[in-house]
Amino acid sequence: MRDEARKDPGQGPAPAIDLPERRRRAAGGMGWIHRRWVRAGLVLMGLIAAILLLPALLRVQPDQLSDNQWASPSWDHWLGTDANGRDLLARVCDGARVSLVVGLAGSLVSLVIGVSWGAVAGYVGGRWDGVMMRVVDVLYSMPSILFIIVLVTAVQGPVVGFLESVAGRRGAEAAPVLFLVVGLGGVSWLTMARIVRGQVLSLRQRPFMEATRALGAGHARLILRHLLPNTMGVILVYLTLTIPAIVLGESFLSFLGLGVQPPQASLGSLLADGASQINPVRTSWTALAGPGGALVTLLMVLGFLGDGLRDALDPRQRKSGHSEG
């Protein structure tokens, strides 16, 4: 396929024909592909370091109140201050940290559900496979955000009460984050399940599976030790692609006031704060641009990392992944 791609540019019958980006990338040689995700990964590490270290270096605290409200950016407060005189840069770093933690933990939840669902469906096969994949199809056609909203509405009260009785005030404060992690992870596993099932279905037919079964390996051992390790690359790629989706979902819900609750901040709730302060008299640009810029940068870097990893680790999905859209 790669040879074909190399010949294609010269062969094209008309200049109007444009090659898909991925083909040209493949034609350019492997080094570039590798560099792409490596670079995205490096930028991401830099971002995380900045999120963790910047407030400490600048000696600003996210929840230190002051009388200095809506200050313009200055050397003391790089992004100015918010309605309660808190340093906005520290708040943005704090919010980005919460968003990232929710993104990581949520994608781990989706990893566990998706991989087990897909692996079991593909391994068992037959009628059960059909039933399990029909469930995935049906869930695909639902607006998943609505599920989370219903979940938050109906179940939050008792869970907050339970956590408060177990872990005190800290438990009650952690509840919204927990809800976001479980809720968003619980609706984001569908693609992962489909991909893992496809992989397991094709691996199941291979001779090495037959051989392992002949040696007397049980079902659990076959799945855990032989099938899943062979799908690791794909799983890693989709894990990486799930993180930005969950970060986006978290910001979305927090923006609407259904996610992270004050005094905790996330990028979404900071944006909501900024948006609520738009007025003709005086508007703080940085209250919107700060968290907005952080979110856009974060999503972009995570997206690049996922796409780059997909190109590097999962060449087959490059072709079919897009057309499935």
Binding site: P244, L248, S251, F252, F255, G268, L271, A272, G274, A275, I278, N279, P280, T283, W285, L288, A289, G292, L295, V296, L299, M300, G303
Partner: peptide, 22 residues
């Protein structure tokens, strides 16, 4: 496509309001 993936409506919306509305 980059814009589509990376600038969510709750970032673009308030900025549009700020520039074109206010």
């Amino acid at each position: 496509s980059l814009l589509a993936v990376c600038v969510p409506s709750f970032v673009a919306g308030p900025l549009l309001v700020l520039v074109f509305g206010v």
